[in-house]
């Protein structure tokens, strides 16, 4: 039997796919940008969902990975554009696939470093330490002048994806949407794998997992690194969408927003980040059209969600999750 959640997921996926084409047909190009933003933010939050939803690791520092992805895209692209070689005579690149690979490696290494130290702790300590490390990266980006410092870095021409013209909004949406679907597929694969089972078991009861001979730390660390890599990939796309990367991508508000997306949608759900990103971007653009102070109302909505609607959107639509 097809579950209600599966049905809702399908509807959400098709809805997100259909909106830009309809928007393009009726001549609303800005809506395509909004849909692309939704897809990218959803991908970033799906990355975080590996650590937070499956592993119960409340990382308040994922903006570091998101921003690092953005900076990798910006830096490689700017070197390719200007022709100045980087270190080791590497010339930079404007190929998205190469940029993504680089970003995933860089963010993975950063995630490994942050994870090794942060995962020694748990609970509130973990939240604060991930936050502090993200701030460290943020302040580094601000005070390092080579790549724009506080002003950020422009990407003059959007990076290239083999075979298509990414400067066309609809095509770029296709790339972002494709990345999101692949990301969701990876999330589902991880969730249903032996590794995923161990990860979720560690979240539910660390002592029992340890007592059957599985060491929790390597499992958590792997999840944290995978999570960092996926969020960084979304960061590359986000930089390409805006054709601009700045320290604000690294700020702690960004980390907060990523968590908000997951909670609005529903923690640990496959499509939670998608539903959350849709709701967030729609709230932002709808309220933003009415009042300059939309964040005030976003705060109220968020507060109400946390206090009264704990399952998020998917929880409201599909009923309680089967597992706690």
């Amino acid at each position: 039997m097809i579950s209600r959640e599966f049905l809702i997921n399908g509807v959400l996926a098709l809805l997100l796919l259909a909106v830009p084409f309809i928007a393009s047909a009726v001549g609303q190009p800005f809506t395509i940008t909004l849909a692309t933003r939704i897809a990218i933010l959803a991908l970033a939050a799906t990355g975080l969902n590996i650590a937070l939803g499956l592993g119960g690791l409340v990382s308040f520092g994922h903006a570091a990975f998101f921003g690092v992805g953005g900076y990798v895209a910006g830096i490689l692209s700017s070197h390719a554009f200007s022709g100045d070689p980087m270190i080791f005579g590497f010339e930079g690149s404007k190929q998205m696939l190469l940029i993504w690979l680089t970003a995933a490696i860089v963010a993975g290494l950063l995630g490994l470093l942050i994870g090794v130290i942060s995962l020694r702790t748990s609970g509130v300590y973990f939240i604060m330490i991930t936050l502090a490390f993200a701030q460290m990266v943020y302040y580094f980006a601000i005070s390092w002048p080579a790549y724009g410092g506080e002003d950020g870095l422009s990407i003059v021409v959007r990076n290239q994806f083999p075979g298509v013209n990414t400067m066309r909004p609809l095509t770029f949406f296709g790339v972002a949407y494709g990345a999101l679907i692949v990301g969701l597929g990876l999330f589902a694969m991880i969730r249903d794998s032996r590794f995923g089972a161990a990860l979720q078991a560690v979240r539910q009861n660390e002592v029992r997992v340890a007592s059957v001979g599985i060491s929790p730390l390597p499992i958590r660390l792997t999840a944290f690194v995978l999570s960092a890599m996926m969020t960084a990939l979304a960061g590359c796309l986000y930089a390409d969408l805006n054709r601009f990367v700045s320290p604000s991508m690294l700020s702690w508000h960004m980390s907060g927003e990523l968590i908000v997306l997951i909670i609005l949608g529903g923690t640990g759900r496959l499509f939670g980040p998608v539903a959350g990103a849709m709701l967030y971007v729609v709230i932002e653009s709808a309220l933003g059209g009415i009042t300059e102070r939309w964040q005030f109302f976003l705060g109220l909505i968020l507060l109400a969600t946390v206090l009264f609607a704990r399952g998020g959107v998917i929880g409201l639509l599909a009923g309680k999750a089967r597992h706690g």
Partner: peptide, 16 residues
Amino acid sequence: HLDQVLATFALILIFS
């Protein structure tokens, strides 16, 4: 703690 982080994050938005 996740709920606490989010609710107080929401409070920051409201206060600011």
